[in-house]
Amino acid sequence: MALDLKLGRSGFPGAVAAAATLWALAGGMVLLAVVLINFFSVIGGVVWKPFPGDFELTEIGVAVAAFSFLPYTQITGANVTADIFTARASPRTIAAFTCLAALIAVLFAGFLTWRMYFGLLDQKAYNYTSAILQIPLWWGFVPILISLVLLALAAIVTFLENTRIFAGT
């Protein structure tokens, strides 16, 4: 159970769930790397001197990790909703609302992928870099775009699953 990557799904939904889970775990590794950088920077600061790039590596690393978590958040239905007004609604009604929510997520993920692709081109064209290590910031945008494509796929899965509930099959 602990390593259930597909989250109980099969076929296309299963593949997307597995990809979202693995991608989130990869992001988790990035987060752990950021944790270790900060940990050793503090130790370094006490015994010798801090590592001057820790600040910007934290910013970039956490951003990359956070984007990689979005598909997993979507596929596990972890986004916060207020359920109070629909507490007595039928499962069908709720499925319809969830479909609408998933549709918004698909559109938004697609839209953001498109826009952030141009964001990447800007970062590259104007040569945005971090201050000390001078890491080109567009590097971070590459995994982020993959995260957003996965988010769109995850939302499509949510949408399809709920249309099925709505249709009563």
Binding site: A24, A65, T73
Partner: peptide, 21 residues
């Protein structure tokens, strides 16, 4: 390793939720 993976998954869904907000 199993608990570490579970912790990372939990962190992923919670952090994803917070950052999207």
């Amino acid at each position: 390793i199993g608990e570490l993976i579970e912790s990372l998954k939990e962190t992923a869904s919670t952090t994803g939720m917070i950052y999207l907000i």
